[in-house]
Write a protein that binds this DNA or RNA. Sequence first.
DNA 1: GTCACCTTGTAGCAAGCGCCACCGCTACAA
DNA 2: TTGTAGCGGTGGCGCTTGCTACAAGGTGAC
Lengths: 207, 207
Amino acid sequence: MNNLNEMAAFRSSPELVAKLNSVSIRKRLKAGSLLLQPEGQIRSILIVARGSLKVSRMDDEGRELLLYYIRAGESCVMSVLGGLHHDTSKVKAEVEEDAEILFLPIEQLPWLIREYPEWLDYIFRLYHKRFEELLDVVNAIAFKRMDERLLVLLRKKQELVGKDSIAATHEQLANELGTARVVISRLLKQLEDSGKVELGRGWLRLL
Amino acid sequence: MNNLNEMAAFRSSPELVAKLNSVSIRKRLKAGSLLLQPEGQIRSILIVARGSLKVSRMDDEGRELLLYYIRAGESCVMSVLGGLHHDTSKVKAEVEEDAEILFLPIEQLPWLIREYPEWLDYIFRLYHKRFEELLDVVNAIAFKRMDERLLVLLRKKQELVGKDSIAATHEQLANELGTARVVISRLLKQLEDSGKVELGRGWLRLL
DNA sequence: GTCACCTTGTAGCAAGCGCCACCGCTACAA
DNA sequence: TTGTAGCGGTGGCGCTTGCTACAAGGTGAC
């Protein structure tokens, strides 16, 4: 999927895709690359052409919490909002799976919205999706226990990579859930005992 | 403040205000009235002309959690998103202080956006604000203890009503923080002992 | 092979918080 | 005045989670 044309969100408007490609800069980035960081200036709007991004929220003491993933064909609403209003990013965004990103300069945004109603529609849809995902995150941390949140995270990760084996250390999982490594090790052990996962060093598998 | 013209967000465009007034239905509603409920259909976009709304998230076991307030001059982004995409509401919205609400039929939204760029700008600004407020809620429940969250809530309430005395029972505060009444009573007692609040029956005051 | 580093398992402890049970007090209406 | 319903204070218990500490096994560089 190297071309936006192939993605559902853009299939209906090859003209828009051509325009986006022509005014953006395209870069290949390895997993782990940092795209936005808290307090950081926003210069471009990010559109994911291939791979995926991970968006997290951080607190002042260095703890972290996964908010959602951005998949191929989607864009980062934080970069749109921050860009539009010349505000800094309030989240961290990094490459989860090796990715190709379109960097759309924020100056281009106003007239793109004017000229291409389908672009505005695309943005609204993304907002809607992210807003509901954020609400789900709120529900999870407010009302669910850690073991359930862990299972949900593992299922999300499995779906994201499309394989049955997930590459992650307990430490990484702990960071994404905003908790400590020992807690995750403990819970994973319980899940293994009850036959729900298979554990390995640096990987695990849902059963 | 009975007239949208007087509000910062609309001051620059009396023409837009006139149009909004002419295509909307205006209603006065008492504190406690329900405007949106989870799974409920969305027929209009809500614009608060006077008073304030309270938006909460609920879980399946009846627990509740305050997300943010909507003040005079602001609109409800959930109703905009839900309306645009013919989706149901994912939150509860109720009147916090006696209010006057404009109900803008969703059919009007597309052409209002086309005709009035300042209206789109208004919506984007609200999104931005709500998104960041949601991120703050996420941070609070993920990383803060209940006593600090309680203090923050009390300060927000005080600012909202503009008086130094806050009318609320422990039960209500507990609901807004997604916890139990005893927990709030306990914490309030501690806050009283450390001289940070003054307690009464059905009211309290920050010192 | 060995050394250093990373990952995981496990035990133990304490804080935070949800929940139950119960009591006393206040406010208001009959 | 008495009844009643709602509100708030308190003690106690147990679960979940965060944290420290340490041991054991894996992995890759040299």
